[in-house]
Write a protein that binds this DNA or RNA. Structure first.
Lengths: 247, 247
DNA sequence: CGAGCACTTGATCGCTTTCAATAGCTGTGG
DNA sequence: CCACAGCTATTGAAAGCGATCAAGTGCTCG
């Protein structure tokens, strides 16, 4: 409620994702047009934002919080197929219904655009179409990166891969650079990590314990993580760490 | 050589992928502009078209044959992250170097565009940019579909999933519809299937034998496959087959 | 005919899953 | 304030699936 009140009156100028979201390349007049079709919505952790198969009448950007895209088989096996961070785009222009479940992993705020007007606007606004193409290509790269993780890495490497992705993202936000320990809170439950990694939650728990025992990571409580040496973590992930940073 | 000779003189009008490739929405004048920057290249089965990390000076479309996108870890584990069929696009506008190995799985013909002029053209040709966005979104969907296969399916389900994808694609090309048996030749070796599915080639072989024993598939030789009942195969794949066809 | 390649099949190993018990934490109600 | 439910997470023991190691088959081509 308070969140909603806060965001109801936000305009694009002081939007935290202004320079990274689908609107990143927009000019002033284009932003003004966007403002007329946008609205904010808040979701609580655990809430399902969109059900797979449901008709979609909006698209939008994650402003704050984390959401996940998941697929579920009839017997209940589920696989997370995307992790949506602030500035990531939700929904597919030109598609009527949602292909995946979208679930708020943490409390979440979204900047939504009514779908029809947004599609129309894409037609005459190359800045938006072009930015969306860039972002989609990036997501495709991320998905392919993840296919390697899912298909070929061991449980230990999978956990290390996930932690290093989160760690490097957080390190790039607070840019003290690559030196020194990285500290963050895990935004995912063990079960969500398992769904992301194609493991069981027990295996996730065991491998995290093992990495802790080997001092690759330090844990305070269940969620607060310190990475003393990101290089060692990336070795455990099986990533090529020699000569240049990934991403 | 003969292939090259044939394709050297092909123009877009009688191109077999004219209506599905990145140029699908182009007008006559746009095609003419494309013709000035395009050229054909042929590759033999097994040949590497692009090495990961190499500078890319072209992008292009698969005209005929099949190529695969693969990632390889330092210790040699490899994962196929994309299967490129005729009309699929290769390369990423705006990126300097290749992110994956691209390998010709069969003999292959590509329609290549010089990268710089193509990027320039994208800027002033919404038909191309828009089509590329559509295709990239489709590829993203396919990649996410594959993440479920890699992360959550059993070896048997993985094989059945791959076979059903190939079978349904072939069935849609020779549109006698969904009725009756589907017959095709496997375009992939057991090893390539293993790399696609995150398995070993021995497991692939065993599961194919098992599906044959259970009459889900019929085999003549190693590669010629008959699917008597696509519905049964899709059940084995763990896909939801009730109420409507997938895709 | 023998070399090389793609594939199959068998035996065994080991990693991850499965099943199960337990701990720690939070919030609720007597 | 304590008891208890509900949830997340940890840990142990056993089972199972796919990987690994190892022959062996069938085919093509020189």
């Amino acid at each position: 409620m308070t969140l909603k009140a806060v965001y109801e009156h936000t305009n694009c100028d002081d939007c935290p994702i202004r320079h990274r979201a689908v609107c990143a390349h927009c000019e002033k007049d284009e932003l003004e047009e966007l403002e007329t079709i946008k609205y904010y919505r808040s979701f609580e952790a655990g809430q399902t934002i969109i059900w797979s198969g449901d008709p979609m009448n909006f698209v939008g950007s994650v402003v704050s919080g984390i959401a996940s895209l998941t697929q579920t088989m009839e017997d209940g096996r589920t696989q997370m197929v995307g992790l949506l961070l602030p500035s990531d785009f939700v929904g597919r222009p030109g598609r009527e219904s949602a292909a995946y479940d979208v679930v708020a992993t943490t409390d979440l705020v979204m900047c939504c655009f009514r779908k029809k007007p947004f599609e129309d606007m894409m037609g005459h606004t190359p800045h938006i179409a072009h930015r969306l193409l860039q972002m989609t290509l990036d997501e495709l790269d991320a998905a392919r990166e993840w296919m390697l993780v899912l298909g070929r890495k061991t449980a230990r490497e999978k956990i290390a891969s996930l932690l290093s992705i989160i760690a490097r993202r957080d390190a790039s936000i607070q840019p003290k650079g690559m030196s020194g320990p990285i500290v963050f809170d895990l935004p995912l439950t063990r079960e969500a990590m398992a769904d992301y990694l194609g493991l069981t939650l027990e295996t996730v728990s065991r491998q995290i314990s093992a990495l802790k025992k080997d001092q690759i990571i330090l844990l305070e409580g269940k969620r607060h993580v310190t990475i003393p040496d990101i290089g060692r973590l990336m070795e455990e992930a099986g990533d090529d760490t020699d000569g240049g940073y990934l991403n």
